[in-house]
Design a protein around this nucleic acid. Sequence first.
DNA 1: GCCTTCGATTGATATGCATCAAGCAGCCTT
DNA 2: AAGGCTGCTTGATGCATATCAATCGAAGGC
Lengths: 230, 230
Amino acid sequence: MSVRLAETPLIRALPLFKEMSERSFAAMMDVSMLQRFPARADIIREGELPDFLHVVVEGAIDLFATRDGEETTIDIVYPVSTFILAAVVRDEPQLKSARTLVPSQLLMVPSQVVRDTFKHDAAFAHGIVAELAARYRSVTRVLKNDRMLSSAERLANWILSSARRSGRNEFDLPLEKRKLASYLGMTPESYSRGMTALEQYGVTSHGATITVTDPARLMEFAKPALAADD
Amino acid sequence: MSVRLAETPLIRALPLFKEMSERSFAAMMDVSMLQRFPARADIIREGELPDFLHVVVEGAIDLFATRDGEETTIDIVYPVSTFILAAVVRDEPQLKSARTLVPSQLLMVPSQVVRDTFKHDAAFAHGIVAELAARYRSVTRVLKNDRMLSSAERLANWILSSARRSGRNEFDLPLEKRKLASYLGMTPESYSRGMTALEQYGVTSHGATITVTDPARLMEFAKPALAADD
DNA sequence: GCCTTCGATTGATATGCATCAAGCAGCCTT
DNA sequence: AAGGCTGCTTGATGCATATCAATCGAAGGC
């Protein structure tokens, strides 16, 4: 049940945990678990109270909402970051479900421990504030994009940020196209058509590889004023 | 420039400020301002760095995003609560603009002071965490509604929460219909048509007064699984 | 009390995107 | 190498909602 500190350098380095005292961190790890899950494993379900704060150590997590059997992907989380922090600190029902996209390793910190620790360790509280604020801004951006951009523009903006993140003009899709489509708030069909539409704006794709051949042209189309900072 | 403590009981009672030490609170008020604005006054503009954390003491604030001259209302804030907290704690550009909807009174706390105080006053840090988490969940809900509900369903859900909040089956619109429409992510025309469509589900409206004549029927239509808690 | 103005409504039309329905291609299995 | 599964693409159609345009109606000014 307990996690050895030797296994945690990546976690310790997270903004959320970096500044907290060695003592609280050790105590927290002592009651946490590091667990492996296969691909497509259900991790948490919408509507339930959060038992654990989760940290993605390895793999990828799909955060999605359900209604009438329909799903929409709200966020996709990669190492090393956390999910359902807000539900944990408020101890309120989760608004999203989570499942692994690929085989993943998760650190699970009992949520009561998170709440207790953040009351006693100021540095941890600051980490939580920074993380929550960043996430808040991120959802806000998604909402703005959904409301004000066409599906092709959202796609273009996503390609631009992915290229920027990778530091190159060519990169591979880190997930299924259908998931990406859902994440961008559109159907797989619309994603596909959007992609062909973007060809005239300096994007080509072969299989899972996307190449930005004319970044300036693409930016002109995407008008990435809204694009990301954090 | 400074705010006298006698003027602040409402602010002091806010979850955000309630638990903090008298000393930090007094110091914070000492460098804050209480200011009145007429209706439709611009308060902050998207893209700028936050100079102040704002608290709506009186009136109503429209938080909106702009693009190509188009606007969409992201949130509407009533007394007594805060806005642009996330941008303040991260000291990053605001993602939304704000303007008064009606004559309003705002408390303005210099953002550097907010950041300093939350480093020294643990109780204030906790308040910020709770507030941020609540807001995060609230945007998440809006996003889910936008993605998964039809415009009429969003409207129905909004009516149900408004009725619940007012404690009665009849209530008055607290703002222009066009603003409400934008807030719900639709045009004024769609709002209007949505309203007539809801008549067969137990809602009538005359002018700015909305009456839920058959709550059960309306709930059946709205399927308010996603509705609010906080 | 009438006129002006601005928002709300209603109607007609347009369009973006979803949905439905086949094809198609890569990949795994045998 | 053949078959079949799965996910991607492409085409045809439909629907929800935006857009455009006109009328209506209430609130405020003169």
